[in-house]
Nucleic acid binder design. Sequence first.
DNA 1: TGCCTTATGCAACGGAAGTGCATTATTTGC
DNA 2: GCAAATAATGCACTTCCGTTGCATAAGGCA
Lengths: 138, 138
Amino acid sequence: MQNLEKILAHNHIKPTAMRLLVLQFLLNKKVAISLTDVENYFDQSDRTTLYRTLNTFVAKGISHKIDDGTGITKYALCEENCHCEINTDLHLHFHCTNCNETVCITDYKIPQIHLPKGYIAENVNLVVKGICDKCNCK
Amino acid sequence: MQNLEKILAHNHIKPTAMRLLVLQFLLNKKVAISLTDVENYFDQSDRTTLYRTLNTFVAKGISHKIDDGTGITKYALCEENCHCEINTDLHLHFHCTNCNETVCITDYKIPQIHLPKGYIAENVNLVVKGICDKCNCK
DNA sequence: TGCCTTATGCAACGGAAGTGCATTATTTGC
DNA sequence: GCAAATAATGCACTTCCGTTGCATAAGGCA
């Protein structure tokens, strides 16, 4: 698990116990998670700390925020070489209305969008809702 | 303003005073509005009534809900012939981070999205954030 | 060791969505 | 036209999530 510390160190985040645990949790989960998810998992721990831990991860660039249209902010680890700020590697998020999970579909890149004259795009968010493959197979 | 009553009647909504007022408000506003917007405008009126009025409009199909990524649910009247439920007339929403307004950009239709095997799309939401034409010109 | 910075934990706030229930208006059947 | 049923409204309250302030604990550095 040295790996975890390396990830943090590489992004200039002090490897506290809590951060290592949260990072591992994010790594294990393949889906985007909410603050409440983390909170439930680390039952004994304080909500604020977890909240700030997630925000630190976002600020330092190892994870990104996702708005999947449920009104609840989700978090997911960035891919290798991800530069969240830049328009080019934006991808699709899929929210399953059955299991309530949100996954990043990195294969699908958002196409160039031509806005009416005068509009300046800074950020694009594409969310598809429906049934995910797991729920579909059941 | 007979028109307003016709719209409601056509969608099987009883034309109460409140509903007519809210409908007119929506018609005048070219942008997507939040419950709070309506609430501020109809200062004397109860929030719950407005909340339920908007929900009724959505349920009966004369307006649709928009999630513009601000975390605040917005509402906008459907276009003529809109069938919100159906994937074909989904359009783009643009949220201006300067004036905080959200507009429907109906000219841009969301292209077909090819999801991985097993996924079923029911709904697509595409939100672009940035600076709108009005703010850009200032 | 002592100082300074950072992380953590507790408490509390605020906005927004939503619900329960009593009251008022509006239909509808008789 | 009246009574009963149905629907709409208004008030109070709850819950959930995001966020902040502040005091304490921990860790790094001179």
